[in-house]
Amino acid sequence: MGGTSTETMKIKLKIWKQDGPSDQGHFIEHTAETVSPDMSFLEMMDVVNEDLVNSGKEPVEFDHDCREGICGSCNMVINGNPHGPDKATTTCQLHMRRFKDGDTVVVEPWRAKAFPVIKDLVVDRSAFDRIMQAGGYVSVSTGNAPDANAIPVPKVDADEAFMSAACIGCGACVAACKNASASLFVSAKISHLALLPQGQAERLERAHAMVTQMDEEGFGACTNTGACSATCPKEISLENIARMNRDFLKAGLQRRK
């Protein structure tokens, strides 16, 4: 039983180091000698960094914040799997008991042209923000709103919209996709509003604007492999991508200009 485990493990790590977007980058090797199975993956990385600092070396930079699986900051590709081997899990919620004593673990950053490396495992995901800025909103200003219960939303629609809105914007879908496609992220965002009455007025325009921005950012196309959804810590469904495609094509056909 965990929680009471006192034995520790030795984990051999190969971690990506890269000074900046133009640097070639390379792996450093480090053995974490006393890894507790109860540590989270990021806590193991903390210990590695303390070791590195104490031995006069540069620590590894990585993004992290809430460490409870909701902020979407952490982003490590662990032995080829974004967020590690577990389903529906972010890197911060992955625990070392998932590994065995003596394992070799390779840690890489999200890799995509649209996510350039800033340093080590830290990548620039601002492309997601720009996609959202292109149209990921309902054009309502503070003070304009009618009473919250003025528009009933069928429970099934509200629940489905919630499932799409659960996306935490971590970018694992891009990291997992063989084409570095952002389709799952963008479609989840488009679907969240497309499924609600509040989002109808701008529905097609929104889909058009966000997809156009997605293409401009240099993400690949969707091959419908489903790796994104299998990797997604919030298990966002591929249905969203179909919905996005529908809305985008409809928008293309209906646009007057």
């Binding site: 080829g80 799997n81 890799r111 042209k113 996709c177 063989k178 084409n179 196309a221 492999t225 790796a227």
Partner: peptide, 26 residues
């Protein structure tokens, strides 16, 4: 070609298990 350009630097380890992409798809 566009898809290839979207990931100029490949991963050093391939994904495994449910998160992997099958050989047919690749």
């Amino acid at each position: 070609i566009k898809n290839n350009q979207a990931r100029p630097q490949k991963y050093h380890v391939a994904a495994s298990g449910e998160k992997a992409t099958t050989a047919v798809q690749k």
